[in-house]
Each structure stands twice: as structure tokens, then as C-alpha cells.
């Protein structure tokens, strides 16, 4: 991808009363990319998002969106952004449609046809003229997405977007975000604590802890690379210690729950199985251990719990 990044954070810091909440954060998000923003509770995810949309000021560094600095040309920068910060809070005494009219009026060129189109996209046609106070959390979330994409932003920022959605809703949102990024080239910046969700949704993830960027990794490249090389495999056997003795000298086996695990290529794994069976050890299962994002996350954050 050679295009200019949609959003770029350069050495962004936030200090409140001598405490450093965010420490020199630098990252870029490209057009058409779904970018995940991961971190334990209190690591500064929401603070970073609030700085990106200008709700709080930066103590140092700068953020530019579509080439405009959030600090010095805020209206131009924010015009290309759609966002939900934390929960999608709406005017509950207005209908969903009146809420969209409200936010639509604040951006130039939003027609009634565009509002109807977005309402259909998020699937709220049947309830859009109901008052928001009668909406479920899932419906409010959809309305939140609707107000965020009304003006076809170049960057969509979603803070914990799957909160309150049922599995079908999460799947729908995921498909919709993918579609947005693929077809309209919208960059999507999502923060979430649902690591498995992020894994399915994102092209890249950044991991922050205590306000510092720990790692940025590409999820697509990772899984492609793993297919070619060695795999970590879990053998489920009845007598693990005997099994390890049988395989002595054939790669390093480690005891694991219900058996042991080894790292080897496919052919070696088949050989090992044959030797175990020949030695009279009962093999109940052989599973490839896929390192989930959660494992990777725990690895880099040092096992800190995620809320």
C-alpha cells in the first residue's frame, strides 16, 4: 500500500497532573484497512481515541487525519471522521430518524436519500421512527454506526463496537465493516477487548499497555507464514511421560494438559504417531495448536488480564 495514511499519530502524549497516560504513541492507519487497537483496561485506548476526535487535547505530538492536523485545523480533520466513542449515546426523546437528521445537518451535503440508504444498510427500517428510548442496546449500536457513516467518512473510529450486540449482530457488523473497507476504501479503527473478534475483523492490530505502544502486527501475514513452516502440535495420550521417552531425540517435547506438545513438520508428526502406537501408547488425538491473538496478546502484555 503506497497511499498516504488516513490517520497518523506522531509521538502523541497525554499527561494529566504529572501522570503520563499516553506516552509518545506513533502509528499509522492506511486507507481500506481495518486496524485493531488492543490493550488491557486502563491502558489508554479510549484516551487515544478521544485525542483523535479532539474531545481532549494532546500534551505532546500531533495527530493528522487525511492530511489535516487535529490540533490546528480541527474542522477539516474531523470532517473526514465518523466515530462512536464508548457507548452510542443518542437523544432518547427523539426518534432514530430525528437523531440522524440532527447529525446529518452538521455535515454538508447529506440528503434524505442518503439517510434512508444508511438506515437500510444498518437494518433499522422498521424501527427508525420509534423513539430511541424504546431501542435495545443492539439497535442503539446500529443507530450509532448509522450516524458515524452518514457523511461517508474516510476514517471510521469505533470504540468497543461489539458491546451489546448478539452473535448475529456481531457477524453482521464484521461483514459490514469489511465491506466498507473493501468497497469504499474506508479505514476502520476499532478498539476492543474481545480478542477473538479482533482476530476475525482486523488486518493489523496495535497493542498498547500503560499508554505505551508495545507492538503492531499484521494478522493476515502471520497465518500465511505459519502454513509453510513448523507447527506446534498437541498429542493427547494416556501416558505422557512414557510417550516422551519413546520419542526421545525426536524434537523437544513438552508436557501439556492431557499429553504433551511438540513443534515439528507434518511428516515428522505422522512418524511420531506411528512410533507411539507401536509402543502401545494410546493416542486419543493430535491437534495443531493455533496461536490465537489472545495467546499473542498475553505474551506481549506479560499475561495481564484483559477486561
Amino acid at each position: 500500500m503506497s497511499q498516504a495514511p488516513v490517520v497518523s499519530l506522531q509521538n502523541v502524549s497525554k499527561r494529566i497532573g504529572g501522570r503520563t497516560i499516553i506516552d509518545r504513541l506513533t502509528l499509522e492507519v492506511n486507507p481500506g484497512e481495518v486496524f485493531g487497537f488492543l490493550g488491557p483496561n486502563g491502558s489508554g485506548k479510549t484516551t487515544t481515541i478521544r485525542m483523535m476526535v479532539g474531545l481532549i487535547t494532546m500534551s505532546g505530538g500531533d495527530i493528522s487525519i487525511a492530511g489535516h492536523s487535529v490540533k490546528t485545523s480541527f474542522p477539516q480533520a474531523i470532517a473526514r471522521v465518523g466515530a462512536i466513542v464508548e457507548n452510542p449515546e443518542m437523544y432518547k426523546y427523539l426518534t432514530g430518524y430525528q437523531n440522524l437528521i440532527h447529525f446529518g445537518r452538521m455535515n454538508p451535503g447529506i440528503t434524505k436519500a442518503r439517510i434512508d440508504e444508511v438506515v437500510a444498510l444498518v437494518g433499522l427500517q422498521d424501527r427508525i421512527h420509534d423513539k430511541v428510548k424504546k431501542y435495545s442496546l443492539g439497535m442503539r449500536q446500529r443507530l450509532g454506526v448509522a450516524q458515524a457513516i452518514l457523511h461517508r467518512p474516510a476514517l471510521l473510529i469505533l470504540d468497543e463496537p461489539t458491546n451489546g450486540l448478539d452473535p448475529a449482530g456481531i457477524r453482521e457488523l464484521r461483514d459490514y465493516l469489511r465491506k466498507l473497507s473493501r468497497e469504499e476504501g474506508t479505514a476502520v479503527f476499532v478498539s476492543s477487548h474481545l480478542l477473538s473478534e479482533m482476530e476475525l475483523m482486523c488486518d493489523r492490530v496495535a497493542i498498547i499497555q500503560k499508554g505505551e505502544l508495545i507492538d503492531i502486527r499484521s494478522l493476515r501475514a502471520e497465518s500465511a507464514g505459519a502454513a509453510a513452516g513448523l507447527e506446534e502440535v498437541l498429542f493427547e495420550v494416556d501416558r505422557p511421560s512414557e510417550a516422551v521417552t519413546v520419542l526421545e531425540g525426536r524434537g523437544s517435547a513438552r508436557f501439556a494438559e492431557g499429553g504433551f506438545s511438540v513443534t515439528a513438520d507434518r511428516e515428522t508428526i505422522a512418524d511420531m504417531n506411528a512410533r507411539l502406537v507401536a509402543a502401545g501408547i494410546r493416542v486419543y488425538g493430535i491437534r495443531v495448536k493455533i496461536k490465537s491473538l489472545e495467546d499473542q496478546f498475553l505474551e506481549v502484555t506479560g499475561g495481564e488480564t484483559i477486561g
Binding site: 476526535v53 479532539g54 474531545l55 474542522p75 477539516q76 474531523i78 470532517a79 471522521v81 466515530a83 462512536i84 466513542v85 464508548e86 457507548n87 449515546e89 443518542m90 437523544y91 432518547k92 447529525f103 452538521m106 455535515n107 454538508p108 450516524q147
Partner: peptide, 12 residues
């Protein structure tokens, strides 16, 4: 209500 967060992230 928390709507301030949606109100202030507009080109105004």
C-alpha cells in the same frame, strides 16, 4: 447523556 461526544466530533 453522553451525547456531547457525538456533538463535538463534527466539522464545527
Amino acid at each position: 447523556r453522553g451525547t456531547i461526544k457525538l456533538l463535538l466530533i463534527r466539522p464545527w
